[in-house]
């Protein structure tokens, strides 16, 4: 039985290197059920890499990943971890992901995009997949666009379909990787609005973003990453208004330089 408040996702001493560059230098993090975590940091801080390690789109170089009390992968000789393909697929079915570039399937309609996971991964019937997909599209305000192909949708609409696609898997943890960074400014609001509405479900969510204002209102907890390490970890009020570290303060100042 799952209860709000217990640990759903845990990361221990996570390292990730690309070639000789170490991007993550030992991350320890435990995520409680129902938490909404915004991850901040300048580009190159490792925030996207951290998120992508959580559903193992990037293989961690070292460290442990524990979902619902079960460690992912088997320890291998030499201190690394071996991941089996089937195990990773099961994990990813439970950890949803929304990408910066949407990555909708261009050869499928909006509805088919949302149906694809339940249909081919969860083994739902076509009728059932269609029903839930339609419901999720309506949830993100696109019930009327079910038959449209992605090329016919605006960036904001595409991203909302992508959110519906992730929701259709009913994931325990939902990851957002800079979901508004490739959108035109006037389309950012509609996507953030949809993400904000998801708060009421009590779903665990992690969001990498540059939208400080949104992070402040949306998140229950904020992480600040710098050079592959977690520098700050606390409630929005504390991290954004009275950060402990000088680095964090300088980062926040850059975003508020042109306040009007």
């Amino acid at each position: 039985m799952t209860v709000a408040g217990d640990v759903v996702l845990q990361v221990e001493d996570l390292h990730k290197s690309f070639g000789s560059t170490e991007v993550l230098k030992g991350i320890d993090l435990s995520v409680r059920r129902g938490e909404r975590i915004a991850i901040l940091g300048s580009s190159g801080s490792g925030k996207s890499t951290l998120l992508r390690c959580l559903n193992v789109l990037e293989m961690p170089t070292r460290g442990r990943l524990i979902l619902d009390g079960e460690a992912v992968g088997k320890p291998a000789a030499g201190g690394g971890t071996r991941y089996r393909e089937a195990e990773l697929n099961r994990l990813r079915a439970r950890v949803g992901m929304v990408f910066q570039q949407f990555n909708l399937f261009p050869h499928m309609t909006a509805l088919e995009n949302v149906m694809e996971g339940p249909l081919s991964v969860l083994g739902r019937s076509r009728a059932e997949a269609r029903r839930t997909a339609q419901r999720h599209l309506e949830r993100v305000g696109l019930g009327g666009k079910a038959e449209a192909h992605p090329a016919r949708l605006s960036g904001g609409q595409q991203q909302r379909v992508a959110i519906a696609r992730a929701l259709a898997m009913d994931p325990e943890v939902l990851l957002f990787d800079e979901p508004t960074s490739s959108l035109d400014p006037e389309l950012v609001g509609e996507v953030l609005g949809v993400i904000n509405d998801l708060s009421e479900d009590g779903r665990t969510m992690l969001l990498v973003t540059h939208e400080l204002g949104f992070a402040y209102h949306f998140a229950t907890r904020i992480l600040f990453l710098h050079e592959g390490r977690i520098l700050e970890d606390g409630p929005p009020e504390q991290v954004l208004k009275s950060p402990r570290e000088e680095r964090t303060r300088r980062f926040l100042d850059r975003f508020t330089a042109f306040r009007f």
Binding site: L57, A86, N89, R92, M97, F99, N103, M169
Partner: peptide, 18 residues
């Protein structure tokens, strides 16, 4: 085919063949 398509499929938990 863009890597994003592979990633989106993997993120849904799809196996390689599917």
């Amino acid at each position: 085919v863009e890597t994003g398509q592979w990633e989106a499929g993997r993120a849904l938990g799809m196996g390689r063949a599917r």
